[in-house]
Design a protein around this nucleic acid. Structure first.
Lengths: 186, 186
DNA sequence: AATTTCATGTAAGTGGTTACATGATTTG
DNA sequence: CAAATCATGTAACCACTTACATGAAATT
C-alpha cells in the first residue's frame, strides 16, 4: 500500500452510498460501475485498511443476527473532504486504452483479407453484445427509478457514454469491413 | 518473465518491419502505435530476451561505424508462425476501460453543477486536442504515403477508429453539458 | 564544453488479478 | 445435506512504469 490512487477515491465515493462493507462495495461495483470500473477483493480489503489508517473512515463491526459479522466503514469529515477535493480536480490525462484489435489490424499485411474480415466481424459481434447489455441495463434503470433519484440520472449519463462510444466502434467496423470487401471484389 | 502476452506479440509484429533493435522498437511504437499501444524500455528489453529464449528470434550484434553497437533481432520461422497464429485468433474479450471522468461524474450528486460542468468542459477540451493530433497525423500519412504502401492503409484504419470514438465522446460531452445547463436554468 | 541522440539494460515500486483459506448461514 | 450466498482476508503472481546506471557519438 502506497498512496492515494484512483481505487482509493472510487471506494471513498462508494462509501457515500449505503454500501459500507467490503463485500457490498464489491457488489455495488459489479452492479453499477461494471462498464467503466472493475475491482477485486484483493484491492478492496487492503484499500479499506489504508483508508482507515489515513483517518478517512472509521470501522465498526456490525453483529447482525443471522448473517456473519460485517465491518462497516463510515467516512470521517477528512474522508469527505478528500473525496470532494478529488472530485473537483479535473482529470490529469485521457485514459490511454490498449486495443488488441487495432494491434492485430495494424499487422494486417501479414494476414489474408479473409482473416482480417473475420477478426473484424468477431469484434463487431462482441460490441453488439455489449451494446445490448447497455440497453437492457438502461431499461432496467428507467423502469425502477423514481423521479427524484439523482443517482440514476448519473448512472444513465455513464451508460450513455458507453453506448455512444460502442456505437461509434460498431460503425467503424462496418466502414472498415466495407473497405476490405470492395478490395476483395476488385 | 512468464509467458506469451500481448507485449510479446506486439514486439513480434514490429520485428516484421525494419525495426530490429530494442531502441528502434521503442521509436516505432512512439511514432506509429502511440494512440492505442504504449510500451517502455523496462518491458521491451526483457521481452526481447524472452523471445530469443523461446526461439522466436535470433540476435546478432551489429557494429556500425559511428554509432554504438546494436542488438539486431530477426524472427525465426517459429517466431513468424507464432505471430501469424496469434493474428488469426479473434480477441478473447473487449478491452475494459477504466474511465476516471465517468467515475467522477457518477459521484456527481456530491458536487455542484458548476463543478461537474467544468469537469466535462475540461474533458471535452482534452478530447478535442486528441482529435487534432489524430487529424494532423492522418494528414502526414496521406501526404507521404505512396500508393502501394500497405502499412499506411492499416495505419489509417487504426487512426480512423481513434477519430470515430473520440468524436463520439465529444458528442457525449456536448449532450451531457446541455442537460446540466438546462437543469441549471430551470 | 554541454547537450542531445543512440543504445542497452536493471531494480524498485505500483496497481492489479487469481487463487486460496476460512467459516457462518441460508436455500434448495 | 449439498450448494449458494454472505463475509473477510492474504500470498503469489503478472504487467507495467519510473528512475537509475552506463557510455559512446553527434550536435549545438
Amino acid at each position: 500500500m502506497k498512496g492515494y490512487n484512483e481505487t482509493t477515491y472510487a471506494i471513498l465515493g462508494i462509501l457515500t452510498t449505503d454500501c459500507r462493507s467490503g463485500y457490498s462495495i464489491k457488489q455495488f461495483i459489479d452492479r453499477s460501475l461494471n462498464h467503466f470500473w472493475k475491482i477485486s477483493y484483493g484491492q478492496i480489503y487492503p484499500t479499506l485498511k489504508f483508508i482507515v489508517q489515513e483517518g478517512l473512515a472509521e470501522v465498526h463491526t456490525a453483529t447482525t443476527s443471522g448473517k456473519p459479522d460485517k465491518n462497516e466503514y463510515t467516512l470521517t469529515p477528512k474522508g469527505i473532504e478528500t473525496l470532494r477535493n478529488w472530485l473537483e480536480n479535473p482529470i490529469e490525462q485521457l485514459p490511454a486504452e490498449r486495443n488488441e484489435i487495432l494491434l492485430k489490424l495494424f499487422f494486417g499485411r501479414f494476414q489474408t483479407s479473409e482473416t482480417t474480415i473475420s477478426l473484424l466481424e468477431n469484434y463487431k459481434q462482441k460490441l453488439q453484445t455489449r451494446m445490448e447489455t447497455y440497453q437492457s441495463i438502461e431499461q432496467a434503470i428507467i423502469d425502477c427509478a423514481d423521479e427524484n433519484d439523482m443517482d440514476s440520472m448519473y448512472w444513465l449519463f455513464t451508460l450513455d457514454y458507453g453506448k455512444k462510444v460502442t456505437r461509434a466502434a460498431i460503425d467503424w467496423c462496418d466502414v472498415t469491413l466495407e473497405k476490405f470487401i470492395t478490395k476483395e471484389e476488385s
